[in-house]
Every structure is written in C-alpha cells, then in structure tokens.
Amino acid sequence: MPTLMQLRDRVRSLKNTQQITRAMKMVAGARIRRAELAMRAARPYAGGIGAMLAELSAAGGATHPLLQSPAATSTGILLMTADKGLCGAFNSNLVRAGSALARTVTKAQFFVVGVKGRVQVRRTPFPVVADWPLQSKPFVELAKDIATQVSGEFLSGNVSAVMLVSSRFVSTIVQRPTPMQLLPIAPTPAPAGAGESASSSDQASARGGGLKNSFEFEPDVGGVLAALLPKYLEFTIFQALLETQASEFAARLIAMTNATDNAGKLIDELTLVMNKTRQASITKEILEIVGGAEALKG
C-alpha cells in the first residue's frame, strides 16, 4: 500500500502529463483543419493536370523517358513518414508497408521523407539513397527537390521503377498506408478525388468521345509531354506530402485523445485510493483518541 504522500505525487505528475497530451491534442486538431484545407485547395490542379495527361495519352504517338521503364535493375521506394512520434502507430505502419513492399521487389532502395521513417528504415537491411525531413521547407519546394532526385535516379537507370508509399487520408479516424506507382508514369483516365470540386472537375468527362482525337498540341505532343510530365510527377509528390501530413495530425489527434482519457481514468482511480487512505488514517486516529480517553476514565 503506497503512502498518502506517494499517491499525491503520482496524481500530480499524471495531471501534468494530461495537460501536455491535452495541449498536443488541441494543436493537432487545429492543424488538421488547415491541412485538410490545403488538400482541398490542391484538388482543382489535380483535376486539370490529370485531364491533360489523359488527353495526351489518348492522342498517342509520343514517347518520353519518364513513361518507359528502362532495363529492370532495382526498385526505388519513396516512403513518406512524419518527423515526430507520439502519433500512435502512424510511422510504424508506414514503415511496415514500405518494407513489406521492399521484400516483394528486386533490389529495393529507399528514398525517405520524414525523420522517423529514416530512423526506422535504417534498421532494415535496405539501403537509403536519400532522405528529407518533412518540415524543412514549403511543400512545393520540397516536392520539387524530391522529384528532381527521384527522376534523376530513374533517368540514369539506377532504379527502373519508383513506388510511392504514403498515407492516404481517408478520414480523421482512418489513415491508410497506400502504395502507388510513381515512375514510370502510368496515365490514369480520371484522377480520383477530383470529383468534389465544382470548378474544373468535369472537364475530363465532359469532353469525351468525338473531341478526344481532335486536340491540337503546341509546340507538339512531345513538347507538351516534356513540359507536363515533370510537373505531374512534382504535383503527385506534393499531393502525397499534403495527405501524409494531414494523416499525421489525424493520427496524433486520436493518440493524444486516448492518452488524455487514460490519464483522466488513472487520476480518478488514484484519487479514490488516496481519499480512502486518508480517511482510514483519520478513522484510526479517532479510534486511538477515543480508546485513550476511555482508558483514562476507567
């Protein structure tokens, strides 16, 4: 049985912890809103560039190094994680998804975004070619850096394909590590997630059929492709960064909500024990006094 003093210290320290977790929960909650807005703001661009790529691949005839896979050598895995922990199994889940993928491909090499991911991947047998912290610079510039490095490795033939493993932000409650092929670029007919924005969402579907092949290209198909593909790669990475960050905040929000609740439960339990202990000692003292008084009387 712990003494009253020990219990009091314990409760005090738990209250401090709870204050910290509650603050982190509130910060994550506020930042998740901003991250979601940023994600939504990127959707019109996604719709537009997806439609253009679909138009180009429908026109056919042009090739570009970023569209073709060179001789199979090794596979690059671009893994996106957070810089900080205290967000549940968020980082571990991503690293696990990444290394599970790495075991299925030939000669995997990692490109890692996020400090936590780098630390964890170092413990796996796979080499890390390059890594970036998630919060070093604005995402637009970070995406540009990553795209340059990754496409450089691809074009020089060091890797014959690049897979992206990042967190898909399904909702505040669900974030799913999701692999997708980054390079060679595989045009998709209509990009997912572009549907909600009223602005430029319908151009892909609205212009179906007869017009598909009547597009004119300036300067020509190859020229447009050469301008579009690097942008497309950059933007895909940019979007994945946004989504990974939103997922991180969501995971932290949940983890910290749980931690705050658990601390509250512990505090309640310990306070009860503490009160009982105090009451027990008071009762004991009263009994002693009464006993002593009785003895004196007798």
């Binding site: 253009m52 009547s214 290209f217 300036e218 300067p219």
Partner: peptide, 28 residues
C-alpha cells in the same frame, strides 16, 4: 475562376487568344 470574353496567353508558339468555341488545344 469566371466567365471571360477573351483570354490572351503567352503560348509556346507565340501569344494566342482564345474566344468561346476555340478548337481544342493543349499548349505549354
């Protein structure tokens, strides 16, 4: 985002103007 009578942009092959009912075009 909005309705426009004419759009003039610096296209790859020189400045170009686009009115409504322009032929489909994709340019840098």
């Amino acid at each position: 985002e909005g309705s426009a009578e004419i759009v003039v942009a610096p296209g790859a092959a020189g400045d170009l103007g686009a009115l409504a009912n322009h032929a489909p075009l994709l340019t840098t």
